[in-house]
């Protein structure tokens, strides 16, 4: 049987996504998402120094400022997940 990378992973596995929660906006590469948590790799987040839209625009232009190698976000706090590319369209 041949090796298939990323088999049985979330459809957005490896994709840079924006995860919206009431408290924060996170951006990073989605690793896993299940009933417990959404896990992002090489992730950054909006820190209230500007608006969420400004943060997203800056991130789309200059890239994700990595603040943590891995961030786990409780699934019950997630309001939405979308691709960064689409969040800017």
């Amino acid at each position: 049987m041949s090796f298939v990378p990323h088999q049985n992973r979330h459809e957005l596995h490896g994709i840079t996504v924006v995860v919206t929660t009431p408290a924060r906006l996170f951006v990073g590469r989605l690793d896993t998402a299940d009933a417990c948590a959404v896990t992002l790799k090489d992730a950054g987040y909006h820190d209230d120094s500007d608006t969420r839209q400004e943060y997203l625009a800056r991130t789309a232009k200059y890239g994700v400022k990595r603040l943590s190698a891995v961030i786990e976000i409780p699934t019950d706090s997630v309001q939405g997940i979308e691709r960064l590319h689409q969040a800017q369209e």
């Binding site: 994709i15 789309a60 890239g63 994700v64 990595r66 691709r83 960064l84 590319h85």
Partner: peptide, 26 residues
């Protein structure tokens, strides 16, 4: 920010176009 894969176009030493990984995915 570091991004791979990515594409960078310089003109006279200035970055004039940058395509990040997130613009490549999918």
């Amino acid at each position: 920010q570091p991004s791979s894969p990515s594409f960078v176009l310089f003109r006279d030493g200035e970055v004039v176009h940058f395509i990040h990984r997130h613009q490549v995915e999918g």
